[in-house]
Design a protein around this nucleic acid. Sequence first.
DNA 1: TTGAATTCCTACCATTTTAGTAGTATAATA
DNA 2: TATTATACTACTAAAATGGTAGGAATTCAA
Lengths: 132, 132
Amino acid sequence: MKISTKGRYALRVMTDLAVNSGEKYISLKDIAERQKISIKYLEQIISLLNKAGFLVTARGYTGGYKLAKEAKEYKIGDILRATEGDLNPTYCLTENGECERKKVCKTYSFWKGLDDVISQYVDSKTLEDLIK
Amino acid sequence: MKISTKGRYALRVMTDLAVNSGEKYISLKDIAERQKISIKYLEQIISLLNKAGFLVTARGYTGGYKLAKEAKEYKIGDILRATEGDLNPTYCLTENGECERKKVCKTYSFWKGLDDVISQYVDSKTLEDLIK
DNA sequence: TTGAATTCCTACCATTTTAGTAGTATAATA
DNA sequence: TATTATACTACTAAAATGGTAGGAATTCAA
C-alpha cells in the first residue's frame, strides 16, 4: 500500500515548477539537480504530466517546462492519478473491476469507504497548499 | 497504491470466522471453500493472524480456528497491519524511514496528512461493522 | 492403535511491477 | 552548425506479489 516513485517524484516536480515559476521555461536538468533525481527517469515522469495537459513546454536551446495553470488549480489527486494510475485501494473498486462476489462480499463497503476518504483528502489539497 | 491479497484475504477470513463463530473450531478447509481461495495460500495468511494473537487454534481431527475476542474488539487497521505490514503511503513516514530531504521537502506534510486520514478510517472500523 | 484430518513450517517459483538506464531522433537558438 | 534542450522507445536488474508444494506435528475417532 505504497505510493510509487512515479507519484512521489511527480509531486516534487510540480512543486519545483510552482516554486520556480516565472517567465522562463525551466529545464529538466535544473529540476533534476535540485531534486536529486535522475534526469532520465524524470523525463518519463514529466512526459506523463505533459500528456495530462498540466504543462507548457518548449524545445531547444532555452526550452523547458512551465505550469499550464496557476498552482491552486491543480488538485493533488489529479497529479497522482496522472502518474500513479487510479488511486483505488482494491481492484474491485476500479472502472471495470468486476468481482462476482461483490454482492455477497462483507468487505466491499469497507474498501469503498477507504477509497472515499483517500479521494476526498487528495482532492481537497492543491499544489498551492504544498508550496506555502 | 493497492492493498495486496494478503490484507484483502485476511479481512475475508476474519469476517468468515466472525459470521460462523460458535462452539466449534472452524477449519481452514471450510473457510477456503466458502471464500473460494486456495487453502495453501490461506495457510500463510492465517498464520500471520495467529501470530498477531487474533485467533485461538486447535490442531488435529476437530481442530481449526476461532476468534480470540469479540468481533467489535478487532480494529480493521490492526488486521491489515498484521498482514500487509504498516499502512504508510510512503517510506518517509515509516518507523525508521529516514529521508535527508524531510526538512526541506514540500510534499512531506501532504503525505503525513494522507497517512492520518487512512489510519483514522481503518482504526474507526471494527470487524463487527463489517458483518452487520 | 492406527488412520484420517487438521494445523504448522519452510522452501521454492513464475509472473508482474518497480525503478531505473540507454540510445536516438527532433527541435530551437546562439 | 554546434549546442542545448525535449520526445520517444527499448531494454533490464531487482524486488514484490501471489501463489504451489512437501512434509512434520498433533489430535481424535473408529
